[in-house]
Design a protein around this nucleic acid. Sequence first.
DNA 1: TTGTAAGCGTTATCAT
DNA 2: ATGATAACGCTTACAA
Lengths: 336, 336
Amino acid sequence: MKHTTIKDVAKKMGVSVSTISRAFNDKYDIKKETRDRILKMAKEMGYSPNPIARKLTQKRSYNIGFVVPEFVNSFFPEVIIGAQEVLLEEGYQVLIMQSDLSWETERKNVKTLVDNMVDGLIVSLTSEEKNNTYYKELISSKMPIVFFNRVVDELSASKVLFDDFKWSFFATEHLIVQGFIDIIHITGTKSLSLTKNRINGFEAAHRKHKLKVGEVIYTGFTTEDGERIAESLIEREVLPKAIFAANDALAIGAMHVFKKNGYQIPGDIAIVGFSESRLAEHISPPLTSVKQPTHDIGRAAAQLLLDQINTTGVFIPQSMVLNGRLNIRESSVKVI
Amino acid sequence: MKHTTIKDVAKKMGVSVSTISRAFNDKYDIKKETRDRILKMAKEMGYSPNPIARKLTQKRSYNIGFVVPEFVNSFFPEVIIGAQEVLLEEGYQVLIMQSDLSWETERKNVKTLVDNMVDGLIVSLTSEEKNNTYYKELISSKMPIVFFNRVVDELSASKVLFDDFKWSFFATEHLIVQGFIDIIHITGTKSLSLTKNRINGFEAAHRKHKLKVGEVIYTGFTTEDGERIAESLIEREVLPKAIFAANDALAIGAMHVFKKNGYQIPGDIAIVGFSESRLAEHISPPLTSVKQPTHDIGRAAAQLLLDQINTTGVFIPQSMVLNGRLNIRESSVKVI
DNA sequence: TTGTAAGCGTTATCAT
DNA sequence: ATGATAACGCTTACAA
């Protein structure tokens, strides 16, 4: 089964290749009648323009590249689905690549996508330091690109953001209001600004309530990291009264260890997570967590990207901040 | 920042384009010395061959397409990561597309990937009926392709399988041995053969133990489906003693509803899941489930695909069946 | 309205 | 060992 080419169709119909081409690209003058005839014949012969060849002459590929640091947690898949909804609607296909938390892999992924001439990119960084000059060049080469979740200020591109400071503040304040003092914040990669913002929110809540600012412990972002920290906490003389974790995986890992060691949650220690995962309401006790609007983040990123793609003149990068919600569940509610 | 082309380099170095080309494709005769000189210069100028143009003349793209029905549950992401491990090693990039449980989207995804000239495809079907003739044509057009998880016998391609019958049998037998009789099996899409195989295993275990075969209830594969079924079960006069769910989402949904209505698990009703998810050991009570070797499924699929890609003569499709494990946890252990 | 032919960035065949 | 040039499948001035 050889691929039918434009020439085959042209020959068969006794017209020139350009006529065929025109039939497939509405913008040229072509008699409606002949166009219909060509399209019909093409369908019969199973012909459709080879996108590779098309890309070589044109600019557009109608493919969008989506690069995420990982996708085992449902956060990124949910964002992707949101983006895909609006992109498919507009006739774009979404090519997804995951970086396995490695900036080298991320770099390769972006390169592959760019080489494949995607019309735009939606990216969440693995690192906020490593690929910056690369992205700068990419941006100044006019590649439409939108960052989300893990972004860096320095890059002048559109961004979809979440107010980590604010929601971290609310989450912490919730614990304080419930009467838990002596709260520890466990968080992941130090260098990410979402980490910094969450820490700032954590501290601000303490200051507002005139409390001594709680300890911050750095680790990774996985369940295993949460377990490790909980174990080290248990070895201490006194346990904190509450833990505010920078994501649900961390919270769930810690919770697991505490329960295994006979501690009551929230009785002995209360727990709050962040970026609510699917597990939150199904684990025991149900986990209080900050819900990010994953779906909408994806949709917004896609929209911003389309705006940029469709802008002919100079494009001014936009930043959008989306709103969240604190879902209060049993894990953080003071038992009397 | 225009893209540097082969001509730019050729002109700059005063050699012909073919020499440059040769330098980048080892297989040609070229003096080592000049090749090194060219490669060095190319790097300086930031030149690398344009893969689009390359694809137009060659066959290979060194891209592999990966199509999954969904990826919110961690099953597919884990498989992808496994496959990516071996593929990246071999210099391939992995383009992922998700079909959103729609066979139309799946069809478009595969087409996009094929149009982009991927060297091979790894696919898990959304439906076992819908795209068959399409895949048949694809296969007979010599596109290397490996199916996994959701496959159809009819298609003669390599497959990575899991012995659903066997593990369903074991899971059911475990419940029987624990003393639970009156077991109900809830399962998803009727038309999938993995569904049928799991049902067969469920029934075979009953027959082996000379028990009346339990009821089978069809629904979808989501947490919400599990919740709905549990509710309808509660409305009945008598509750079954145990539930064997065809996946963890279903099990967890059902569990959630039972707990909310005050039923003890496993006291009032025992539960077993399938395709162990991350949640299994973190929910309460921890869920007994059949663990599939997700990682290895991915690796095996990738290996099979590479074998096919690297076979010059006729390729004989291979099928691999991977082994699982029944992780017994609290949710299915008889309380005395 | 349609055809001719140059060009997109490579690789591959044939000379030299 | 290297250079010229056709070819890959398509788009797009430019002509007709």
